[in-house]
Simulated scan of single mutants.
Amino acid sequence: MGAGRHRSSGLSGFWMPRTDQTAQAFAARDSWSMGPGRAASDVSSHNAADMSSVRRLLAVLANPPLATSGQRTLNRVSLAARLIGCDDVVVGNLFPIASKDVTALGTLGADSDQWLAARDGLLRLLLGADDVLLGWGRAEPAGAARIHHRSQIQWLMTELESRSLQVWTVGGEPRHPSRWQRHTCRAYPGRPFGSALAAALLAGLPAR
């Protein structure tokens, strides 16, 4: 699911790491690296943004994990930030309470209260962001939680459309970081993960 630790506030899953060391480790492992100041391949002219000031990426995930530390997710989001050209990362969640998987989210998210409570935290994160990466996953919770989940995404899309922020997805959909390598292996067979992820990071809002 999302990343971070179990908290009940809308800021659960909040990180602000420096991205350079994490990305360099991935690049070294994959025998691939970017030139200075490069971003996610050449998918957008936004990649040439001035790097003289701190540029912050907000990654929006589903909800914090319960069974893991979320470090693998953080590593991949930090790599994506470096490829895009960002210096710092913050992670927000559509739903603030941790769960083991999307099935459990269907139970935890049956009421609208926590979904609505998460919006204040997400709005604060949007105010401090320059780029937004959508990564809550393609799976949906069941039951009433599905309605609230879709409503939360609709609300976020409306907020994004009203702001001058660059939005990113992997492969044109809000894939969760845990699924990125599966996608890049299929879409870019034979390419190292870092290189394939750079090509897969696409600028623009996904189709509704």
Rank of each mutant, 00 (worst) to 15 (best):
Q71C: 06
A27Y: 14
E161P: 02
A198W: 08
P177E: 04
A207H: 09
W136L: 06
R163H: 08
G128T: 13
V132S: 04
L122V: 01
S9T: 14
E140A: 12
E140T: 13
S8T: 15
H176Q: 10
S151N: 13
T169I: 07
S99N: 11
T103D: 08
R82K: 09
L83K: 03
A144C: 01
A187E: 13
G4R: 07
L108N: 08
P96R: 07
S162G: 06
A118V: 02
A187Y: 00
L202A: 10
Y188G: 00
A48T: 11
G135K: 01
M34C: 11
D111A: 14
G143P: 03
H176T: 05
T68Q: 11
D101A: 07
P206G: 01
G37F: 10
A80C: 07
R7E: 11
A117N: 12
L66F: 08
G190W: 12
Q114N: 14
P177N: 05
G35Y: 12
A196I: 06
S112F: 11
G106F: 07
W15R: 04
V89M: 05
A144Q: 14
P64M: 10
F95W: 12
V89Y: 04
Q154V: 03
G37A: 10
A129W: 02
D101Q: 05
I97A: 13
V89W: 05
A27K: 08
Q166Y: 05
D101M: 08
M34E: 11
L201F: 06
A23F: 00
G194M: 11
S69Y: 02
S12T: 13
A142I: 03
A49G: 15
E159A: 14
R29P: 06
R150H: 09
R186P: 00
L61K: 00
A145G: 08
P141Y: 06
T184E: 10
L201S: 06
D130Y: 00
Q181G: 00
R29W: 10
V77G: 04
G85D: 02
S53Q: 14
S112K: 15
S44L: 06
R18P: 02
D50N: 15
S41E: 14
P64W: 07
Q114S: 14
